[in-house]
Design a protein around this nucleic acid. Structure first.
Lengths: 211, 211
DNA sequence: TCTTCTCTGTGACGGAGCGTCATCTTCGAC
DNA sequence: GTCGAAGATGACGCTCCGTCACAGAGAAGA
């Protein structure tokens, strides 16, 4: 996507380029830490930039606002998750249940990882930006799920269901059950995943029984 | 729920009490209008209060912040919806599918009503406060659904499913499908409700087919 | 190497919105 | 009619924001 290195230095560029990259990342890291410590609402641009040693002006060279930094963080998450999702699609080889199970399991593992990576000082809701952040990458995830569903379903004899509603419902189940999973100890990604998958595949009558 | 009128004035109280009530309501109405016009983020406390003719100080006698006003608005919505939900539970007389169908239908009608009541000047996302507002009344709605599900399910021979996950999943489906329904024209509450109900009752294989 | 040009970093500054508080007004009790 | 309390008022100080004139460091050319 950019210039190709043509000397021994692999992915360098000039010193300018390097510090730019480094600063961008530094700000992102600082922001993640500050959001975790102070909570998103309380945190200010100054809090973030102080941690990097840069100046206020420098911050605005990279991001337009606190919101944009958070978006960058989310976008980053979604961007890292997308290939995982794609791998599940490829591995499922056209079988819907395999895809859904793989996708949801992967998602829950991802969720737990991220959750722990944020060095949890503050409760989840405070860390979150209170916005229904809808970054391009997140919309891409939704689209990817919808497409996968549509592709797989089309292969089946089964005539079409409303792919948009279905995708929305699947994502909704996965997200919400995942959210509740994170609140429980011990963390049980498998149990939660199985619940979600069964709910999608067979609805209530199919759900795993307790006791 | 409060004092009984013991004179000819039905629900008055002194003039003090009356203006207090009136002001509270005025602020709420103004806020709804301002959020619709300017969007939640852009709107300021001053924008809201200007519309009422009151002073800044007066605002802070009633609410602590813009956020609290929005919470009051949401809370109000949830409070009005609760009895509707309860009525569906009573009418279902212990039958789960009847309850779910009634609840979701009622919810979608409610959704569309509210949606139209907000005199839509701005897109939905901008009107919304970007917070994952979780008011007491909203938590109460969740609890009510969870309880209803637990009560009804317990009657069935069927052994227990995870009521918390199930409630979360049902609400998630209803909410998300509802959200997509609102984006489509013409508005089809019945179709969306049927989709959600079938998804919950029988999962994907049970979903209504298109064409 | 030295010069020049350009790009990035700096932080003081003006502005916006916030929430408070000393003060005034109005209500209602006696 | 008097007086105490509840409530309204809006100027004030504060915090955070985003900008911009300036400075310093890297690249490019001689």
């Amino acid at each position: 996507m950019s210039e190709v290195a043509y000397l021994s230095v692999p992915a360098a560029g000039g010193k300018r380029e390097q510090t730019k990259l480094a600063n961008r990342q530094m700000i992102l890291d600082a922001a993640r830490a500050v959001f975790a410590e102070l909570g998103y609402e309380t945190a200010t641009v100054r809090d973030i930039i102080r941690r990097t040693g840069l100046s206020v002006g420098a911050f605005y060279n990279y991001y337009r606002s606190k919101e944009e930094v958070y978006e960058a963080l989310s976008d980053d998450g979604a961007r890292r998750f997308r290939p995982i999702l794609q791998a599940q699609y490829d591995a499922a080889d056209g079988d819907f249940e395999t895809y859904i199970r793989g996708a949801i399991r992967a998602y829950y593992v991802f969720l737990v990882d991220e959750h722990e990576a944020w060095q949890t000082t503050r409760p989840v809701e405070e860390r979150q930006p209170h916005m229904q952040v809808e970054t391009p990458e997140m919309r891409a995830v939704f689209e990817q799920v919808r497409n996968s569903i549509e592709l797989i379903r089309r292969k089946d004899q089964q005539s079409h269901v409303d792919a948009e509603y279905l995708a929305a419902a699947c994502i909704a189940i996965a997200r919400e059950v995942g959210h509740h999973m994170l609140m429980r100890r011990p963390l049980d990604t498998e149990g939660a995943a199985e619940f979600a998958v069964q709910m999608i595949m067979g609805g209530l009558p199919a759900l795993p029984r307790i006791g």
